[in-house]
Design a protein around this nucleic acid. Structure first.
Lengths: 122, 122
DNA sequence: TTGCATCTACGAAACTATTCGTATATCATT
DNA sequence: AATGATATACGAATAGTTTCGTAGATGCAA
């Protein structure tokens, strides 16, 4: 499943804050960008149809929960992105990403650790 | 400028093969997936309007040239992707990418070299 | 229980990306 | 110069995303 950009923004709220109402998600989203309430509602209804989220309809306000994990979704998106933008070369993407984005000492350590796990002799 | 997926596929052909006619690009593209000739033509006309490519109209068959570099385009796309899919965390993306994609010994070496340049003490 | 605030459902507009058909232009060959 | 192959231009259908207005349901508070 490939969420659209708007859907991804909503998923991020759900991943971060846990199960939420449309109101809560909308409040969060509108801190960054403008969006009508019914727009958020409609999107979440569509996501429900697609199976990206589940919802509890017990109360007046339905409660939505992400039904895909952040990691799985990122993996799917990354696969596609490596393919389309970097012609399948993940290492090129890595070099580009490391070159142009700041990373903390801890993150760099973590990356080095992973590299040593992959190939301790390199 | 953010090329669409179809536009990106065309740019890749131009980056790889250099200035080309619609016919040449179309021949290349149809090795991977199906696409009508006039579809490729239309896309390249649109890309011309957008300024993604330039073209020489001297001959009967126009010759198209990429007017954006591969690296610049990848940088732009990567920035956007890190933002939307990884909420700005490039290091998470790197870890994910290294974890799920094969990289050759040479590529791993190159990545390690870059890491040492970024922070020799880490 | 009446009314107000808030909710959901849903149709449809606006926009973008992709696709191709058809009309017309160009050029090489006879 | 006429023919046929191949080119461009361009309108328009299709599909997907994002947007919001409006109608109607729900529940709390006076």
């Amino acid at each position: 499943m490939k969420p659209t950009d708007a859907e991804l923004a909503i998923l991020h709220v759900l991943w971060q804050n846990g199960p939420s109402t449309v109101r809560q998600v909308h409040d969060q989203l509108t801190q960054d960008r403008e969006m009508g309430y019914t727009t958020a509602l409609k999107l979440m209804q569509i996501m429900h149809e697609k199976g990206l989220v589940t919802r509890t309809e017990a109360a007046k306000s339905h409660i939505y929960t992400a039904d895909v994990t952040e990691t799985d979704t990122q993996r799917t998106l990354l696969d596609r992105f490596v393919e389309t933008a970097f012609r399948g070369s993940a290492s090129k993407l890595v070099l580009q990403a490391l070159g142009q984005h700041k990373a903390s000492r801890e993150e760099l350590d973590e990356i080095k650790k992973l590299l040593n796990q992959i190939d301790p002799d390199a």
